[in-house]
């Protein structure tokens, strides 16, 4: 059960996980449209507090741009640092599948939290923030295992490469999202 929750890539990778992952990303985008959740970075998820109306395609484009940046960075890192013959489809598939905790996060945003003043945080807001944080950590753990399995990099090397790649993907996705959607 733990393997299925944190490392399903032992059993699923490649095209199968890519198709499942894309369905998850699309479903998440649909939920995000109604709960006004923006995935404005590779590992970012924010609740829209302004009344500005964004077109539906924004909500679809955001997670796909995030995923593309992650795949690009991690594939390059894998190609450079892995001794194994890694496949692009494995990185693409596992990283798409790894985004499924964000579907729950988009769902949670139907309940709020609606924090506008840091001195007025309700217990429900606090609880929702912690649950959201849990889903973010879960997704990062899934992405780490996706990288480990797809690129066959282990130990300290995998941890450092993962952190560097994640930061690089976050920065690149932020830049691309800024210039394409804003």
């Amino acid at each position: 059960m733990t393997t299925w929750l944190f490392n399903p890539f032992t059993y699923i990778a490649g095209l199968k996980s890519l198709v499942i992952g894309w369905i998850i990303i699309l479903a998440t985008a649909c939920i995000a449209y109604y709960s006004h959740t923006h995935f404005d970075g590779a590992i970012d998820a924010h609740l829209q507090l302004s009344n500005k109306v964004y077109p539906a395609w924004h909500y679809v484009a955001e997670p796909f741009i995030d995923w593309s940046c992650l795949v690009l960075v991690f594939f390059i890192m894998g190609k450079v640092f892995s001794a194994s013959a890694i496949r692009f489809i494995d990185i693409a598939g596992t990283f798409a599948f790894a985004r499924w905790p964000f579907a729950f996060l988009a769902l949670i945003n139907f309940l709020g939290p609606h924090i506008k003043d840091l001195t007025r945080i309700s217990p429900l807001d606090l609880l929702l923030i912690f649950i959201s944080l849990g889903f973010c950590i879960w997704m990062i753990a899934l992405m780490y295992n996706a990288f480990k399995v797809s690129a066959n990099i282990r130990g300290q090397k995998s941890v450092w490469l993962f952190i560097i790649s994640l930061i690089a993907a976050e920065v690149i996705s932020k830049i691309i999202l800024y210039y394409t959607l804003h």
Binding site: T10, Y11, A13, S84
Partner: peptide, 13 residues
Amino acid sequence: LGLSYPTVRNLLD
């Protein structure tokens, strides 16, 4: 084996 392709490739490596 009921495993993913990269898992089997990693075992082989």
